[in-house]
């Protein structure tokens, strides 16, 4: 199975998706998920935890030394390691809320 299996086509008008880590480096704290890379237990785990296309991740806290990270998604709190956040492709979105 190709590794891009779970990625969805990105609308041409949308900005280029970047990994969640790259997006956070830009300073904004709220980002919208466009895809989870890969098709392995970790990718499936992220999906069942609510990290799926359209979900909005809001950075709430960083553990000491910046890893793991705490996000709000669908109204609850989800801790992700940087390596896990690396799997998540996002576009910056909804910075106003």
């Amino acid at each position: 199975m190709p590794s891009s299996q779970s990625e969805i086509p990105v609308p041409t008008a949308a900005p280029t998706p970047v990994t969640l880590i790259e997006a956070l480096a830009g300073g904004a704290t709220v980002h919208e998920v466009v895809a989870v890379q890969g098709d392995d237990p970790l990718a499936r785990r992220l999906q069942t935890a609510g990290v799926w296309p359209g979900a909005r991740l809001e950075l709430l806290a960083r553990a000491p030394f910046g890893d793991p990270l705490l996000f709000r998604v669908h109204g609850f709190r989800l801790a992700l390691r940087r390596s896990e956040a690396q799997r998540v492709l996002v576009v910056a979105g909804g910075a106003g809320s």
Partner: peptide
């Protein structure tokens, strides 16, 4: 595959 991806409850 070590995973965290863990919910922090209220």
């Amino acid at each position: 595959v070590s995973m965290l991806a863990m919910e922090l409850p209220v």
